[in-house]
Design a protein around this nucleic acid. Structure first.
Length: 425
RNA sequence: GUGGGCGUAGCUCAGUUGGUUAGAGCGCUAGGUUGUGGUCCUAGAGGCCGGGGGUUCGAAUCCCCUCGUUCACCCCA
């Protein structure tokens, strides 16, 4: 046992998993960039106040924040999510709306780790600021939906709801609180505690004993203003016209307090754990203003990278093959030929590797085999003396010896032409 | 924060009612093959049995504490 291990809720993403991870982010980036979204990289920590705007009643703010005083006496917090940072960035830099951005990176929440839940966890996501149009809601949801399709996930369902405008939400929460209070004898102890902080969140309880009370609770639909109801109907109609299947669930309330109007969640049917929500988002029209910016509508979503990959494992999709080399260079004369040949091949655009420490021919051949290289280039005493090299096809075991000067052109004819590396001027 | 399961080699795991020097498979290294991989054979390296305390002549094994991990609640991606 080594002296140090990763801190609870964190882990090393090792190869080959890290390669698959990066590939997933790449697919996401390609998808949203083709829709006009540009990358934003906010800092990993901010003034605590930025995140307190997420809501006093959310656990994310009240008990899960990684916060500390820095040496300058500032109260700092590691970001628990990206949305608040993006809105802070908008308020700070005032870019011209519409501002369409995407991000990818780690977030931090102090929770007890379990399946699909870590203290440092990665999300990819998008945010759009400055557009109040139900068609944008449809675009955002569609981009999330299309991403899951593009990595091969089929067992993901989309759940949508509307929380109405700020006023609707307030009236609904009031009615909900009144209802649960009169039925408090039907609620679990935990649900009663939740009721104190935020009646909306009681709807999230997974405890069976709370189910009857929740089933009889008033639903948000009846409280929507004319505007909010029309907005939601337009979103649903848009999803219909794009043939994106969805389920309306009036019990869907998202975890952060800033959501208004459209909210949605992507749930994997292949994850039997409690963490089956692989992504979620919604509209947050008041957040930029809360952070000191101009009144600006906003909408976005975040997808959990870990959970998405867990879902891929369950559905056996988005498999990742480790990168295969073009060439493995074997040198039994001490290694200096391998050093120069791999360097030249890499400059010529070939992927190439070699062994070190002057190992035996057999050992180097094993390394070549494990590397997955298509051909081995072999330099032994004979080749060194004659300025030749032996090129061996590792799948057919055929090999020929050629003059060293013809190596690159020979490889190009065997493996196909490669683009030489160029240096940016 | 609350509750349950589990910690033995790099990995997956055996280990009898407590009893000498803790094992296997895979992986790794080397040799069999005086320049040639994937199969096969042989050998080798690699363990504070998570950590600390206790019971005992004797503890991987029993007890307590602790740390880690895992699952659920809570909450969330």
């Amino acid at each position: 046992m080594s002296s140090f291990q990763t801190s609870p809720g964190t882990r090393d993403i090792l190869p080959p998993h890290a390669g698959r991870w990066r590939a997933l982010v790449q697919v996401f980036a390609d998808g949203v960039e083709s829709a006009g979204y540009e990358n934003i990289i906010p800092p990993m920590f901010e003034d605590l106040g930025v995140f307190q705007r997420l809501g006093d009643a959310t656990d994310v703010v009240t008990k899960e924040m990684y916060d500390f005083m820095d040496k300058g006496g500032r109260h700092i917090a590691l970001r628990p999510e990206h949305t608040a940072s993006v809105c802070r960035a908008f308020a700070q830099h005032r870019p011209t709306p519409p501002w369409k951005v995407w991000y990818s990176g780690p977030n931090f929440r102090y929770e007890r780790p379990q399946a699909g839940r870590y203290r440092q966890f990665d999300q990819v996501g998008i945010e759009v600021l400055g557009v109040d149009d139900s068609q944008l809601d449809v675009e955002v949801i569609a981009l999330g939906w299309d991403f899951y399709k593009s990595i091969g996930l089929s067992n993901v369902s989309l759940i949508v709801n509307s929380l109405g405008d700020a006023g609707d939400r307030g009236r609904y929460i009031e009615a909900l609180g009144a209802y649960f209070t009169t039925h408090s004898e039907m609620l679990s102890e935990q649900a009663l505690a939740t009721l104190e902080r935020n009646p909306l969140r009681v709807l999230d309880s997974k405890r069976p004993e709370d189910a009857p009370a929740i089933a009889g609770a008033p639903t948000i639909g009846a409280f929507l203003s004319t505007d909010a109801a029309a907005h939601f109907a337009a979103v649903c109609a848009g999803l219909d016209s794009l043939n994106i299947p969805y389920v309306i669930n009036e019990r869907l309330v998202r975890g952060l307090d800033y959501y208004q109007r459209t909210t949605f969640e992507f749930v994997s049917g292949s994850l039997d754990s409690a963490q089956n929500a692989v992504g979620g988002g919604g509209r947050y029209d008041g957040l930029v203003e809360d952070l000191g910016g101009p009144a600006t509508p906003g909408i976005g979503f975040a997808l959990g990278v870990d959970r998405t990959l867990l879902a891929c494992d369950a559905e056996e999709c988005f498999s990742y093959g480790f990168p295969v080399l073009d060439v493995f260079v074997i040198d039994t004369t001490g290694g200096s030929h391998a050093m120069s040949i791999t360097h030249q091949l890499r400059q010529g655009g070939f992927t190439a590797d070699r062994a070190f420490e002057g190992r035996s021919m057999k050992s180097q051949m094993k390394s070549a085999d494990r590397s997955g290289a298509q051909v081995a280039v072999i330099i032994g005493d004979t080749e060194a003396e004659e300025s030749t090299c032996t090129v061996r096809n590792l799948s057919t075991s055929e090999q020929t010896t050629i003059p060293s000067t013809e190596l690159q052109s020979h490889l190009a004819s065997v493996l196909g032409q490669r683009q030489p590396r160029r240096h940016t001027p």
